[in-house]
Design a protein around this nucleic acid. Structure first.
Lengths: 364, 364
DNA sequence: CTGTTAGCGCTTTCAA
DNA sequence: TTGAAAGCGCTAACAG
C-alpha cells in the first residue's frame, strides 16, 4: 500500500504530532480532541507540536470512530428557487452556529431523485436529514421510512406528509390562501381566478377531482387550493372550474390561462396566484390584454419578494417566513440529535399578507 | 467500547454481508465495491445477502481508506442571494451528475468566516473546493494558500484574485459594465450615476481613491467601476465623484444616494446599477422623486431577473450566465480531480445585455 | 478467483 | 495521568 494513500502532502496525523511532542498517541489525541485528562505540561508540548506541523484533525476519521459526522443532509426541490434558497439559508445559519455543516441535494420534484438523494445521505452517514418531500401517498414514502428505520432523525419542512409521523415545519398554507381570497372577496370580487391548480393529466372539473391525489398536487398546492375553496364557500360563491388553471406549472402556461380567464364572457376580476412564477405569468397576461391592475383586475400572490414592493403599483403578496422555516427545522433536528425527542409535532409558522396596492374593487 | 458505537440500529456492515453469504470479507467488498474479480456465482450470493440485509456502503469508511470523499466544498457569499443560488445550482447539477455531492458554506463577505469555512472543508477532507472569495490583497489569501499547499484543488468562481494562481471562472465584469454605460451614452446621457460604489470608510473623491484597495472593493465591484470609467473616458465625459454612490451597500442607501443625485443642480439623467438591490433602491428613489423611467431617467442594472421583465416598463438588464458559471467551475474542478491539470487559466464567460425599455434619451 | 491481513486516523477502553 | 491496543467499516496488497 502506498505510504500516502488517503493523505495528500503535508497532512500530519495525530501520530506524527505525538512523535514530535514525544508523547503517546492517546495523549496527543486527548489534548487535540479536547477530551480526557492531560497534564498542563504535556498539553503544552502537544499543542506546540500540532502548531508546528500545522495539524488539522481528520473529521472523517473522527466520524468513523465516534459515529457522528456533524453534517446534516438537506433535500429540497430546487436550490435555485428563492424560496428554497431562503429556507436553506435558515438551515445553514442555525446549524452552522451549532457546529454542523450541510450537504444539499435538489430533487426538482422528481421522486426518483428524492430517493437517490436519501440514499446518498444515508451512505455519507449524515447525522440527520431535513427534507421538503414531494411524496404524497403512502406508496411514495418508502425511502423515508427506510431512513427512519435506520435510526436517522428526519424533519420535514415546507410540506407535510400525512403518511409520516415526523416533526414538520410548515406554514398554514390553507389559511394563508383563504385569507388572501377573503381580501379579494371583501373588495367585492366574485369571479376569482386560481393560478396555478393541479397539473392533472386530464383537467379535473369537479372539486373532488381537483383535490384528489391523482391530480398530483404537492401538499402546499393542495392546501392552497383548499383555502381558496374555503373562502369561496364562506362567501357562498359558487365554484367554477373554468377559473382554475390546470396544466404544467410554468409562467408561460399561467400567462395563457389567465389570458383565457380574462377573455371569458363572465371574466375574472381578480386572480389569486400560488407561486411567484404564477404571479409573473398573470402580470404578463394582464398587460397583454391591455389591462391594468388593480383597476381592471386585482392580484394577490404567494411569496413576497423585494421586487413586488417596487412594482408600480406595488403588489399585495403573501410573505412566508422563509429563513425562519429553515431555522426552525434545523433547531428541531438539532434538538433531536441532542437527545430531546418529545412527541413529533407539526410546527406551524405564521405567514403574513403584505397589503400593498394590487387589490381594488372590481371595475363596473 | 459499546458494540453499537458508530452504527445505529440496522446498519449491516460488509462483514455481516460476507458472513450471510458465506464468503470472505474481501469477496463481499469486491462485489459490493464494484472492483476486482468475483465469480458470477459468489457474486450472486453476495448480492442476495446484501439485498436481504439492506446493506448500504458506509461512504465514510470508504473515504477513509481510499482518501477520496466524493464531496466538493463550496464557499459563497450568501446562499440566499439569487445570484449565488443560481451558481450553486450549476455547481451541484454538474457535480451531482458526476457522482459528487457538495457542502456549502456562506461567508456573508466576512473574511473570518471564509477562513473558518476553508478549515471546515479541509477537515472534512473534501476532494476540492470552489470559492467566491472576498479576499483582495495578498494579505488575505493565506487560508487559500494553506489549502493549496495541502494539495486541495481549488477553483475560484465569480471573483478573480490576483494574488492566486488558480483556475478561475468569471464573466468580464469590466466589459459588461462598459457596454451598459456605453448604451446610456449612446442614448445621449452624460450625467450618469454609478450605484453602488465602494463602501469606503471615508468617501474617496478621486479616481485613484475609488479604485484603491483601501476602499475595499470586491473584485467584481472594482471591475464594474473600471468599466464605468472606461466608457466615460472613451466618450470624454469628465468623471464626477458626486455621481458615484459610496457607503453601505444596501437598498436603502441606494435610494438615498440616487435621490441625492437626482436632486443635484446638474442632476443625473441615467443611473447604472451594479447589483439587484441597487436597482431596487434606484427604482424607489425615482418614484419618490415623482419621476418616471425611462422618460425622466434611464436605468440599467446588473443581474437580470424574471421580475425585471414584467416591470412596467420592463428593465434593461445585464444577464449573467449564473448556472453556467457554477457548472463550468465544477467542470474545471472535476477535471482537475480526474488528473487533467493543464495550466491554470481564467475562464471568462459571456454575459449579455438584455435590452428592454428602461433606456431613452435624456429629457430636454 | 478468493481469503487473509494490514492499514486509513481517530477514539476509547484498560492496565500500568 | 499516560500509553498500548483494539476497533469503526472499508480497501487493497499479497499469498494461495
Amino acid at each position: 500500500m502506498p505510504a500516502d494513500r488517503g493523505q495528500a502532502a503535508g497532512r500530519p496525523t495525530i501520530s506524527e504530532v505525538a512523535a514530535e511532542a514525544g508523547v503517546g498517541r492517546a495523549t496527543a489525541a486527548r489534548t487535540l480532541g479536547g477530551y480526557g485528562y492531560v497534564s498542563p505540561e504535556l498539553r503544552e508540548r502537544v499543542l506546540a507540536a500540532a502548531q508546528k506541523l500545522g495539524y488539522r484533525a481528520n473529521a472523517l476519521a473522527r466520524s468513523m470512530s465516534t459515529g457522528v459526522s456533524h453534517t446534516l443532509g438537506v433535500i429540497l426541490a430546487d436550490i435555485g428557487n428563492p424560496f428554497f434558497a431562503g429556507v436553506l439559508r435558515g438551515i445553514s445559519d442555525t446549524s452552522r452556529a451549532r457546529g454542523f455543516d450541510t450537504i444539499v441535494l435538489s430533487t426538482y420534484e422528481e421522486l426518483d431523485e428524492e430517493v437517490a438523494a436519501t440514499n446518498v445521505l444515508i451512505d455519507k452517514r449524515v447525522d440527520g436529514v431535513i427534507i421538503a418531500s414531494a411524496a404524497i401517498g403512502r406508496a411514495e414514502v418508502a425511502h423515508i421510512k427506510a431512513a427512519m428505520s435506520r435510526g436517522i432523525p428526519i424533519v420535514l419542512v415546507d410540506r407535510a406528509v400525512a403518511a409520516l409521523d415526523l416533526d414538520t415545519v410548515v406554514i398554514d398554507n390553507r389559511d394563508a390562501a383563504r385569507e388572501a381570497v377573503e381580501v379579494l372577496i371583501a373588495a367585492g370580487h366574485r369571479r376569482i381566478g386560481f393560478v396555478w391548480g393541479p397539473s392533472a393529466p386530464e383537467t379535473p372539473t369537479t372539486r373532488r377531482g381537483l383535490l384528489s391525489e391523482k391530480s398530483r398536487n404537492l401538499w402546499t398546492d393542495g392546501e392552497r387550493l383548499r383555502g381558496y375553496l374555503d373562502a369561496l364557500d364562506d362567501a357562498r360563491i359558487p365554484f367554477d372550474p373554468e377559473l382554475v388553471m390546470t396544466g404544467p406549472k410554468t409562467e408561460e402556461r399561467a400567462t395563457e390561462e389567465v389570458g383565457r380567464m380574462l377573455a371569458l364572457p363572465d371574466h375574472v376580476t381578480a386572480v389569486f396566484c400560488t407561486e411567484t412564477d404564477a404571479v409573473l405569468g398573470a402580470l404578463r397576461a394582464v398587460r397583454a390584454a391591455g389591462l391594468a391592475y388593480p383597476r381592471d383586475i386585482s392580484l394577490i400572490g404567494f411569496d413576497d419578494s423585494a421586487w413586488a414592493a417596487v412594482m408600480d403599483p406595488p403588489l399585495t403578496m403573501i410573505e412566508q417566513p422563509v429563513h425562519r422555516l429553515g431555522a426552525k427545522a434545523a433547531e428541531v433536528l438539532l434538538d433531536i440529535l441532542h437527545g430531546n425527542e418529545p412527541e413529533h409535532e407539526i410546527h406551524t409558522l405564521r405567514s403574513r399578507l403584505v397589503a400593498r396596492s394590487s387589490v381594488a374593487p372590481p371595475s363596473a
